[in-house]
Computed example of a mutant assay.
Amino acid sequence: MDSYPYLDRREVAEADELIRTFGEDAGCEAAARADRSRDLGNHVHFARWRQVERLVVLMSIPRAVGTVH
């Protein structure tokens, strides 16, 4: 992954909760929530759920990604 999403504490907590609740399907659930927000015309929540979806994928990689200091 060449770029990292801008994250805040709330998005990390949401991604963690989705992973705990949905396991391997957490990314699909975040995508579904993003789609639902888009269908309702809520672009702010759409973008936030897409970020959470990216974070779920990033958190599922079993190794460090990027530069490790």
Score class of each variant (00 low, 15 high):
residue 31 A to Q: 05
residue 16 D to P: 01
residue 60 S to V: 11
residue 41 G to R: 06
residue 4 Y to S: 00
residue 47 A to N: 13
residue 5 P to D: 00
residue 64 A to L: 15
residue 10 R to C: 02
residue 48 R to F: 11
residue 28 C to A: 15
residue 27 G to W: 00
residue 2 D to L: 11
residue 2 D to H: 13
residue 57 V to F: 13
residue 2 D to N: 14
residue 65 V to P: 01
residue 28 C to R: 09
residue 30 A to C: 08
residue 49 W to A: 00
residue 24 E to M: 05
residue 11 E to Q: 15
residue 18 L to N: 05
residue 26 A to Q: 08
residue 14 E to P: 07
residue 60 S to Y: 05
residue 62 P to Q: 08
residue 22 F to L: 05
residue 7 L to A: 13
residue 64 A to Y: 14
residue 35 D to W: 04
residue 14 E to Y: 02
residue 36 R to T: 12
residue 21 T to Q: 03
residue 22 F to I: 00
residue 15 A to G: 15
residue 55 L to I: 00
residue 61 I to W: 04
residue 57 V to K: 14
residue 26 A to F: 07
residue 7 L to P: 01
residue 33 R to D: 07
residue 16 D to M: 12
residue 55 L to W: 03
residue 18 L to K: 04
residue 29 E to W: 09
residue 66 G to N: 13
residue 40 L to A: 15
residue 7 L to K: 14
residue 43 H to T: 14
residue 8 D to M: 04
residue 13 A to K: 12
residue 3 S to E: 15
residue 65 V to H: 02
residue 5 P to Y: 00
residue 44 V to R: 12
residue 65 V to N: 07
residue 42 N to T: 03
residue 18 L to I: 01
residue 32 A to G: 12
residue 23 G to I: 03
residue 34 A to M: 08
residue 19 I to C: 05
residue 4 Y to Q: 06
residue 40 L to P: 06
residue 44 V to L: 11
residue 36 R to S: 11
residue 67 T to A: 15
residue 52 V to S: 02
residue 51 Q to T: 11
residue 60 S to F: 10
residue 27 G to Y: 03
residue 44 V to H: 08
residue 1 M to Y: 01
residue 10 R to H: 07
residue 46 F to Q: 10
residue 22 F to D: 02
residue 63 R to T: 13
residue 16 D to Y: 09
residue 8 D to G: 08
residue 10 R to Y: 09
residue 29 E to G: 02
residue 2 D to Q: 11
residue 24 E to K: 04
residue 39 D to A: 06
residue 30 A to P: 07
residue 51 Q to R: 13
residue 54 R to M: 02
residue 40 L to N: 10
residue 19 I to S: 01
residue 59 M to N: 04
residue 8 D to F: 05
residue 51 Q to M: 06
residue 4 Y to N: 00
residue 21 T to G: 00
residue 61 I to L: 12
residue 59 M to V: 01
residue 40 L to Y: 12
residue 38 R to V: 01
residue 62 P to V: 06
residue 56 V to M: 06
residue 19 I to W: 03
residue 42 N to D: 15
residue 38 R to Y: 10
residue 38 R to C: 04
residue 42 N to R: 08
residue 5 P to T: 02
residue 52 V to H: 01
residue 46 F to K: 10
residue 9 R to K: 13
residue 6 Y to A: 11
residue 60 S to R: 15
residue 64 A to M: 14
residue 54 R to Q: 01
residue 28 C to T: 04
residue 8 D to C: 03
residue 6 Y to E: 14
residue 13 A to Y: 02
residue 59 M to Y: 04
residue 2 D to S: 15
residue 44 V to T: 11
residue 6 Y to S: 11
residue 3 S to W: 13
residue 56 V to I: 13
residue 13 A to L: 10
residue 13 A to D: 05
residue 52 V to K: 03
residue 17 E to G: 08
residue 44 V to Q: 06
residue 69 H to L: 11
residue 27 G to D: 03
residue 7 L to W: 04
residue 19 I to V: 11
residue 20 R to Q: 08
residue 35 D to Y: 03
residue 32 A to H: 13
residue 58 L to V: 15
residue 6 Y to I: 10
residue 10 R to D: 07
residue 68 V to M: 10
residue 59 M to C: 04
residue 27 G to N: 06
residue 36 R to A: 15
residue 14 E to T: 14
residue 14 E to L: 12
residue 27 G to T: 03
residue 35 D to T: 08
residue 34 A to G: 13
residue 50 R to D: 00
residue 16 D to C: 06
residue 33 R to I: 01
residue 41 G to V: 09
residue 41 G to L: 07
residue 6 Y to K: 09
residue 40 L to E: 12
residue 19 I to N: 03
residue 36 R to I: 04
